[in-house]
């Protein structure tokens, strides 16, 4: 259920983007203390609770490998009795710098989904649909997404503040999309 897909809000872009963006959360965790892959997976789950889709361990190892190649982390082999050596990763000075840059720079805001706007502006020219019908359909869609979010919030453990904040963020974006539809209706439909 990719609730926000159609509402065009990438709440956490830095975590998405083909797994490449797991990089920075991993660097942040390693800034606290060196860790091996599985510990990182657990730490992500613990920090974000249900607000973070549980990362795949393979993806974490692939990302760690790339970070190592880029010189942002290093690995040391730790011997284990009766088991293969375990790789413990730690942050390099370059890694810390990349992390600081990421934390310091402003994060890109969400953009208006221009696909709907294109339809809204162009559809009447083609005679395929009138604007009121388009706006009504879009409003119904947003309202049903809002219902999904409301139910999701009700199902979420009230103690899971990170998750509730994330849902509230999505809710506020959706409310803004609905307000914007009203503005379109006022200005484009006569």
């Amino acid at each position: 259920m990719h609730v926000m897909h159609s509402a065009n809000v990438d709440v956490n872009r830095q975590f998405g983007n083909g797994g490449g963006r797991v990089r920075l959360p991993l660097l942040a965790l390693l800034a606290k203390e060196p860790a091996h892959g599985y510990e990182l997976k657990q730490a992500l789950e613990q920090t974000f609770g249900s607000a973070y889709p549980s990362p795949n361990i393979g993806q974490i190892y692939v990302t760690l490998g790339r970070l190592e190649k880029d010189g942002l982390v290093r690995a040391v082999d730790v011997e284990q009795s009766n088991r293969p050596n375990k790789k413990v990763y730690y942050l390099t000075a370059d890694g810390r710098e990349a992390l600081e840059t990421w934390v310091d720079e402003p994060t890109e805001g969400p953009r208006v989904r221009d696909e709907f706007f294109m339809k809204l502006v162009l559809a009447p020219l083609t005679g395929i649909a009138d604007r009121m019908a388009l706006i009504n359909r879009q409003r119904r869609h947003y309202l049903s997404l809002m219902r999904d979010l409301t139910e999701l919030a009700e199902r979420t453990d009230p103690g899971d503040r990170v998750a509730l904040l994330l849902i509230e963020g999505a809710t506020l974006h959706l409310q803004a999309d609905l307000d914007w539809l009203e503005r379109c209706q006022e200005d484009l439909v006569t």
Partner: peptide
């Protein structure tokens, strides 16, 4: 309502949702 008239009257039927978590709010690509 718009301009004093009803422009849409939408019945919001309940759907059965697959169980989801807040993580689904995050769009993961790729």
């Amino acid at each position: 309502l718009a301009d004093g008239m009803i422009v849409d009257d939408a019945s919001m039927r309940r759907r059965r949702l697959p169980p989801g978590t807040a993580g689904d709010v995050v769009e993961l690509r790729g």
